[in-house]
Design a protein around this nucleic acid. Structure first.
Lengths: 254, 254
DNA sequence: GTCTATACCCCGATAGAC
DNA sequence: GTCTATCGGGGTATAGAC
């Protein structure tokens, strides 16, 4: 992943411009390879991603690709990191100002993630679907993978600073685990809130995965509305709304 | 999938016993093929399931397999149907008596699904994970696929017959879709309840998928407790508990 | 219903010339 | 850094003998 070594042998003291040009060409080709790989991801899936097919489509010879990615798994890792960064950026961009309504912020972030998923279903499957057999994600994927979760925690933190927002109930059996989670994720937040958030976060991805992976076929039709309402309720129940605000809805329709 | 045609040519009027033996042998071999295929599913994933490898491992020659499954996709379909039936049976078996506590029944069914998933991760991935590229599930998978959902609906129906269990709030925007869902899934239940149930159902699978697919690595450790508590809350929030019962918990820790 | 043989494809990875 | 050539695998599916 570090291209600094490549130009140093010939470009050492002769020409900074040349080295710059080479690095530019290199990064362009790298980008083209990843783009084509993403196309293949859509057609054949991650398990069958093949360097040869990518090379063929780019008019290269397979061995040339090894100058850019030392193995198939490294290419896969690059795609995974890109995907996490892409959805993470979408989530961060949707979070909005810290003083906005927490449930609306929560809903906006989750909706952004869903929109990203609908626009990039195969990349979504790559990072949130079944693991690729025989592939083990390296440590480098951990940081980008956490961006969405951190965004949601930020929303919760801002909400918790506001008035009247109480953490949700926490069962006694869950307290030790909740404290462990809070210590690792957001030591400044109440453990009950952190535990609720992690559950809520995974529940939102359950909604998205079911929609994307076809489990809602013939069951849910107006999926935009269904998602928006479900996610808002998850957010409220997780402790982002001032206590009692859900009751308003309840009174309306009881 | 229909084996009646195979023995009829030679066994027509001569020997019912012979035909019985042949069909028995056939079903045993069919089972052996599926078992070996499941083993390969675990090792290589559904996308790379190959008839040749299955045949090799069984000491057969690849072309012999075509007498049992006309194509790779038919074998895959058989595995999918088996998996849905397997998890469906586990769910149904855990539902317990109709007069038990609804939230406990809900939790028992969801826990059974999770246990099944942990015991059969690759079959879970096959049916609830990323779709297999290039494979389209035929209509025959629909009925087995609905068994878990129907079990949860049954639990909700029994709960709704009980005293004091009110459907959860339903936002006005969601009412048309909720009525559509209710019409297709459980016309005798309130639309608000059906919509909540579908959302809750997908949220439970979000928890299971995140755990199974590695998203809880280094985040959730005591997963049994985390799942049990999260699922119980989902069930209560979906309208399986008498109104106000969640408040008990709330008062305990507020 | 199992066998051999075959047609015709695919892959990851490396060696060594240029 | 790209090329050809190569090693040593893999696959689906069918034809036709037995």
């Amino acid at each position: 992943m570090n291209s600094a070594n490549d130009g140093s042998r010939t470009g050492g003291g002769t020409s900074g411009t040349l080295r710059g040009a080479r690095e530019r060409a290199r990064s362009e080709i790298t980008a083209a390879i990843k783009d084509e790989a993403r196309t293949q991801l859509a057609a054949e899936g991650a398990a069958k991603l093949s360097l040869r097919a990518v090379a063929r489509e780019l008019g290269m010879v397979s061995s040339a690709l090894y100058r850019y990615f030392p193995s198939r798994d490294e290419l896969l890792t690059a795609l995974i990191v890109d995907a996490y960064d892409s959805v993470g950026a979408a989530a961060e961009g949707a979070a909005g100002p810290a003083d906005a309504d927490p449930v609306e912020r929560w809903t906006a972030v989750c909706t952004a993630v869903r929109s990203w998923a609908l626009a990039h279903p195969h990349e979504y499957a790559l990072i949130y679907g079944s693991p690729v057999p025989g592939y083990a994600a390296p440590q480098t994927t951990i940081a980008p993978a956490s961006r969405v979760g951190l965004t949601l925690i930020t929303v919760a933190r801002d909400a918790h600073r506001g008035p009247g927002v109480a953490p949700p109930p926490l069962a006694a059996e869950l307290r030790p685990e909740a404290e462990r989670m809070a210590a690792g994720l957001a030591a400044d937040l109440p453990p009950a809130l952190v535990a609720s958030l992690v559950a809520a976060w995974s529940q939102v991805f359950g909604l998205i995965s079911f929609e994307l992976f076809g489990q809602f076929t013939k069951i849910v039709e107006d999926r935009d509305t269904f998602f928006a309402q479900s996610v808002a309720r998850i957010g409220r129940d997780a402790g982002l709304a001032p206590a009692g605000s859900a009751g308003v809805l309840h009174r309306e329709y009881a």
